[in-house]
Design a protein around this nucleic acid. Structure first.
Length: 436
DNA sequence: TCTGGGGTCCTAGGACCC
DNA sequence: TCTGGGGTCCTAGGACCC
């Protein structure tokens, strides 16, 4: 098998990865602006106030389960004095940017892995004491932004992920773990169960357990061809990574997305086609904006609708359809009309109560590679100018300041968000006031 | 009343072509 | 006994991540 990474290893002395992960990120963000919540359990809910998607340590301790529907916890939250928040992505996104900027000051290169995590390139640093560097990072983020983080440092990405978890579980007060030698790596692999290993999900954990494999250490001792056969090349890559062979490449530059999806539950179940049309138009326009932001156009548009699968006594129906664009596009009006065309085809009237719908744009290509269709009647340059102006205004004045006439957006389609905090950091009207 | 949303990658199987 | 073989493209479905 050998080493399977492709970067310029001839010029490098060694690989070393740090994974910095914010603790309970969304809950920590909310707490930042309401210090009186210190010590109180906090939960953050998904869109529509549907499920629990973030919990403070206190909430974890009293048994709030990730992903559970919020309504099941109503009483429990009240009884236990839990502070409940709707998600406030504007706030989290802004705090994330600040964390990443601070991290970027420590290393030549970093890879932003998600809103609350980044891999730092620690190979070939002049720094000799990486553990100390991890501690410095943690301290700086706490001081500059006020968000607690943990740091895991190891010779591969998968091991750095594991080191991070190990830091959280085994060295909570320090919050940093450096898997500096084989002995420490072995301890960590023995400590971590397969189901808590990055890259092993529920299905594979069950498969491994059936084969008497319970820890990551035992997983690394399985024969490579068994892993390849049962868990595909993805599993094999992970197996190598956990054995100290880097296989997952750096992605320092965010790649343009290959698909973009905007989907959401309709506030409540409905069979009213006009409500669904409205939601679809809205999702389509969000897709178009996301396309323009990454300078791509789509060749296909997909629409999906579905009834509520949790309602066992309701008639069920779900369907999706893809149509090809005449000319690849990112124009709001065009994407909306394609999406509505799709909806027309798959919408089934009758006793079906729809719960969710969405729009996907597929087969994305760079904006300036469009093959112009000779029979294309649209004035695309004009469209482009109008949309650019629209995006600028919306960015400056807040989204939906300017909309296309086809976006029939009114009060019928609105997300539920009963507990939103303020945009403390991005909106002057909601900035924190301090009494002196 | 109320059960998230947005992604990626891999595999298998069918259609089609030469 | 023994259905040709190999390539590509497309789609659906599965598994995983945050």
């Amino acid at each position: 098998m050998g080493r399977c990474y492709n970067h310029h290893h001839s010029t490098r002395r060694h690989d070393m990865y740090a994974l910095v992960d914010c603790n309970n990120f969304y809950a920590s963000c909310e707490r930042l602006f309401q210090p009186h919540l210190n010590g109180r359990p906090i939960v953050v809910l998904s869109n529509n106030d549907g499920c629990v998607i973030a919990r403070s340590d206190e909430a974890k301790e009293i048994g709030v389960v990730m992903g559970t529907p919020a309504y099941m916890f109503q009483e429990f939250f009240k009884k236990n004095n839990v502070a409940v928040f709707s998600s406030n992505y504007t706030l989290y996104g802004d705090l994330s940017d600040r964390v990443m900027t601070t991290l970027a000051g420590f290393v030549p290169r970093l890879e932003i892995y998600s809103i609350d995590e980044a891999f730092l390139d620690m190979g070939d640093l002049a720094y000799t004491d990486l553990l100390q560097l991890g501690l410095d990072i943690k301290k700086m983020i706490a001081k500059n932004i006020g968000i607690p983080v943990c740091v895991g440092i190891a010779p591969t990405k998968a091991l750095a992920k594991m080191a991070n978890r190990y830091a959280k579980k085994k060295c909570k007060s320090v919050g940093v773990f450096y898997a500096a030698n084989q002995e420490l790596i072995k301890d960590m692999l023995e400590f971590t169960e397969v189901e808590n290993t990055w890259g092993i999900g529920r299905q594979h954990a069950l498969l491994l357990n059936r084969n008497n494999i319970y820890t990551a250490k035992e997983f690394t001792e399985m024969p490579a061809d068994w892993v390849r056969k049962k868990m595909s090349v993805v599993g094999l890559r992970l197996w190598n990574e956990l054995r100290g062979v880097p296989c997952i490449e750096w992605e320092f530059e965010p790649k343009a997305k290959k698909n973009i999806c905007t989907s959401r539950s309709l506030g409540k179940i409905t069979n009213d086609l006009s409500v669904i049309k409205e939601a679809i138009s809205n999702h389509a326009s969000v897709c178009a904006l996301k396309l323009r932001n990454q300078h791509t156009v789509c060749r296909k548009v997909q629409v999906l609708i579905a009834t509520n699968p949790h309602k066992l006594n309701h008639k069920q129906y779900s369907h999706s359809i893809v149509i090809e664009c005449e000319t690849p596009t990112n124009a709001t009006g065009e994407i909306i009309s394609y999406a509505l065309k799709c909806l027309d085809i798959i919408y089934k009237p009758g006793d079906y109560l729809y719960m969710k719908c969405g729009v996907l744009v597929l087969d994305l290509i760079p904006q300036h590679h469009i093959q112009v269709n000779l029979f294309d009647v649209r004035n695309r340059q004009r469209d482009e100018k109008i949309l650019l102006a629209m995006d600028k205004i919306n960015k400056l004045m807040g989204k939906d300041t300017v909309r296309m006439a086809v976006q029939r957006f009114d009060r019928r389609f609105r997300l539920r968000a009963d507990h939103v905090s303020k945009k403390y950091t991005t909106n002057f009207k909601e900035i924190l006031k301090i009494k002196i």
